[in-house]
C-alpha cells in the first residue's frame, strides 16, 4: 500500500470513529431523541392546530370554493397544518445543527479535544465528524417528524412518490450540512458553553421567523422578504414543501432551491475545514 493510500484510509478511519462516538452517545440515550422530537410535535399539535386559518373564511361566510382557492393561493395547499408541518422539518434541523456547536465546546472543556489533537487524526476530520453526526441525527429526526406529521393529519400531494421523499432528504441534508458547519465554525475557539448557548438562543427563532417555515414569505414586508431570500431555511423548506405536499411542482424554483442549498453547504463546509486547520489549536 502506498503511503498516500494509507493516509487517506486512516483519515477516513479516524473521521468515522469520531462521528460514531457522537452518534453512540446519542442513541444510547433515547431521552435525547425523545426531547428533540417532542418540541416539533408540540408546535404541530398546538401551534399548527390553533392557527386554524381556514376557519377565518368559513366563519365569515366566505363560500367554501373561494375559501379553498384563497388558501391554495396563499399557502399552496388547502390546509395550514400541512404547510407548517413541513416547516417543522426545518425547525428540527435548525435546532440540531445549532446545538452541534455545543458539543465541540464540551470536548474542549473536558480535554478530549486536546487529546484528539495530539493524535495524527486529520484536523478537518475532527470538525467534519461533528458536522456529519449532526446531519445523521437531524435527518433521522426529520424522518420521525414526517411520520408524526402524517399521523397528525398532514396531506401528502397526490403525485407523491418515494423519489419525492429522497429529494426531500437531499434538500434537508444540504441545509443541515451548511448550518451545522456554520455553527461548529462559530464554536471552534470557544471555551464557554454559555456563549454558545446565548448564540443559539439569540438566533433560533429569528432564523425560523425570517424564513417561510411558518408563513409564506411573499406576504412579508419588503425588508423581511430580503432577509428571507438569503435565509437558507427558506430554500430547504420550499424544496421539501414542493416535493411533499404541493400538487404542482415549480421545476425552475426547485432547481433554484437546490442550487442555493448546494452552494450554501459547499461554502460553509469548506470554511469549516479551513478554519479547523487554522484555529483548532491555538
Amino acid at each position: 500500500m502506498t503511503q498516500e493510500n494509507h493516509n487517506a484510509k486512516s483519515m477516513f478511519h479516524g473521521f468515522w470513529a469520531l462521528t460514531n462516538r457522537d452518534l453512540k452517545k446519542w442513541y444510547k440515550e433515547p431521552i435525547l431523541l425523545f426531547m428533540s422530537i417532542i418540541q416539533p410535535v408540540l408546535w404541530m399539535g398546538l401551534f399548527g392546530r390553533a392557527m386554524n386559518i381556514g376557519a377565518i373564511f368559513t366563519n365569515n361566510n366566505v363560500p367554501p370554493e373561494i375559501a379553498n382557492q384563497l388558501m391554495i393561493q396563499t399557502f399552496g395547499v388547502g390546509d395550514y397544518f400541512s404547510f407548517m408541518a413541513v416547516g417543522m422539518l426545518s425547525f428540527v434541523i435548525v435546532f440540531t445543527a445549532m446545538f452541534s456547536g455545543m458539543s465541540i465546546v464540551w470536548d474542549r472543556r473536558l480535554g478530549f479535544l486536546n487529546k484528539a489533537l495530539s493524535t495524527p487524526v486529520a484536523r478537518g476530520a475532527i470538525i467534519m465528524s461533528k458536522v456529519l453526526s449532526a446531519v445523521v441525527r437531524s435527518l433521522i429526526q426529520a424522518g420521525i417528524v414526517i411520520v408524526l406529521a402524517w399521523l397528525l393529519g398532514m396531506q401528502f400531494s397526490s403525485s407523491f412518490t418515494v423519489l419525492h421523499l429522497l429529494g426531500t432528504f437531499a434538500a434537508l441534508f444540504l441545509m443541515c450540512l451548511g448550518l451545522a458547519s456554520l455553527f461548529i465554525a462559530i464554536a471552534i475557539r470557544s471555551t464557554r458553553w454559555e456563549t454558545q448557548m446565548a448564540v443559539v438562543n439569540l438566533l433560533n427563532l429569528p432564523l425560523i421567523f425570517t424564513s417561510n417555515a411558518l408563513f409564506p414569505s411573499n406576504f412579508m414586508p419588503d425588508w423581511l422578504q430580503t432577509i428571507s431570500r438569503i435565509n437558507p431555511i427558506t430554500y430547504g423548506t420550499d424544496a421539501a414543501r414542493q416535493l411533499l405536499i404541493l400538487s404542482t411542482i415549480d421545476t425552475s424554483k426547485l432547481i433554484m432551491d437546490f442550487a442555493f442549498l448546494g452552494g450554501f453547504a459547499l461554502v460553509f463546509a469548506t470554511a469549516g475545514i479551513i478554519l479547523s486547520w487554522k484555529y483548532l489549536s491555538k
Binding site: S10, H13, G14, A17, L18, K115, P120
Partner: peptide, 14 residues
C-alpha cells in the same frame, strides 16, 4: 473498551 478502540482509530490502527 470502546474508549481504547476510539483512541486506536485516531491513530489509524486497523
Amino acid at each position: 473498551m470502546e474508549n481504547i478502540l476510539l483512541c486506536a482509530d485516531l491513530y489509524g490502527i486497523p
